[in-house]
């Protein structure tokens, strides 16, 4: 099967499941599909840095959490009618998703610019450790941020709104998340084929040769890291809206690890990799998690099998093309 068909089949499956659930009156399944779509979006963001750019970031939970807190902070001010004070200015909160998304994207992109600008001066294991350290800084900051719930997190009473939709209806919120995921995947697909994506891929393979054709690997990777962080941040805002809750757990290093697991399960650098990884993860979490408390052990076993026997992840297995990255 070609990769294009795998991508289309995965998208069709994600779309069909909640439609079936709607017909069968199984609203919880719709919520599970929404969770899978949002995690797939977060992992698609990571996949741009990790898959195309070869940047193993163990700090992407920072962007996921920043997106989450952007939603939590704006919505909590809206629900208490207390304005948000930014130095000399006072800004009202909002429950409008488009505004929240813009803030989430801007805030996480800015954080990614700062973190990337410093981390990308290193490589390999140092890059992993520095991104982890930045992620932990945000985590500990959030746990001690009393104004926004500290360790307990922040609850939002009503899901935020989107013009023309009733986001409280599960299938409508799913449709919104699915559309955002689709847009992100289209963007990633175009990016892979554009000169920027090709040069980024080349910088992963051979940075010195990229310099020789007049491109700076540092700038290419920084741009990819910012884009990657922004998409993961947007996913964070949606995730917080799904749960109507945001807590430091979204910023924890385990969250960063989980995102990496999703990408590896599905296929590093593959367009559908994050989607298939997230789908499998949510399915296992639901089914195995219902049967045994130790479902993570099974996830570990599957991950081990994929890393050992299918380096291109599930997409690689389905397309019959192992890891292109050798």
């Amino acid at each position: 099967m070609s990769e294009r068909w795998v991508t289309l089949a995965a998208l069709a499956a994600l779309l069909a499941l909640p439609l079936w659930a709607l017909a069968a009156d199984e609203p919880f399944t719709i919520t599970l599909a929404t969770r899978a779509a949002i995690l797939a979006l977060a992992a698609t963001g990571l996949n741009i840095a990790l898959g195309t750019g070869g940047l193993v970031s163990l700090g992407h939970a920072a962007f996921f959490g920043i997106g989450g807190y952007a939603m939590g902070i704006l919505a909590s001010h809206a629900q208490t009618f207390a304005p948000l004070s930014l130095g000399p200015w006072e800004v009202p909160g909002t429950q409008s998703m488009p505004v929240i998304w813009l803030v989430a994207i801007a805030a996480s992109a800015l954080a990614a610019l700062a973190i990337g600008a410093l981390s990308l001066r290193t490589a390999g294991v140092y890059f992993i450790m520095i991104t982890l350290a930045f992620g932990q800084m945000f985590f500990y900051f959030a746990t001690s941020w009393r104004a926004y719930g500290g360790e307990d997190g922040l609850s939002i009473w009503v899901r935020n709104g989107f013009p023309g939709l009733n986001t409280l209806v599960p299938i409508q919120f799913f449709g919104l998340c699915f559309a955002v995921l689709l847009l992100a995947m289209l963007l990633h697909g175009r990016l892979i084929r554009a000169p920027f994506g090709l040069a980024l891929d080349a910088a992963r393979q051979a940075p010195a040769r990229v310099l020789a054709v007049g491109l700076s690997p540092y700038r290419l990777q920084l741009a990819a890291f910012v884009l990657s962080g922004a998409i993961t941040g947007l996913a964070g805002a949606l995730y917080a809206d799904l749960n109507r809750f945001v807590s430091p757990a979204m910023l924890s290093w385990q969250m960063s690890g989980e995102l990496i697991v999703l990408v590896i399960l599905g296929g590093v650098g593959r367009l559908a990799g994050p989607l298939i990884g997230a789908g499998l993860f949510v399915a296992l979490e639901h089914w195995l998690g219902g049967a045994t408390e130790y479902w993570h052990a099974w996830l570990g076993a599957i991950l081990l099998a994929i890393v050992l026997f299918a380096r291109g992840g599930i997409v690689g297995l389905l397309t019959g093309q192992g890891d292109r990255r050798g």
Binding site: L198, D201, A202, R324
Partner: peptide, 9 residues
């Protein structure tokens, strides 16, 4: 760039 195609290179 070994993993890119001719045109992509």
């Amino acid at each position: 760039f070994r993993d890119l195609t001719v045109t992509e290179n």
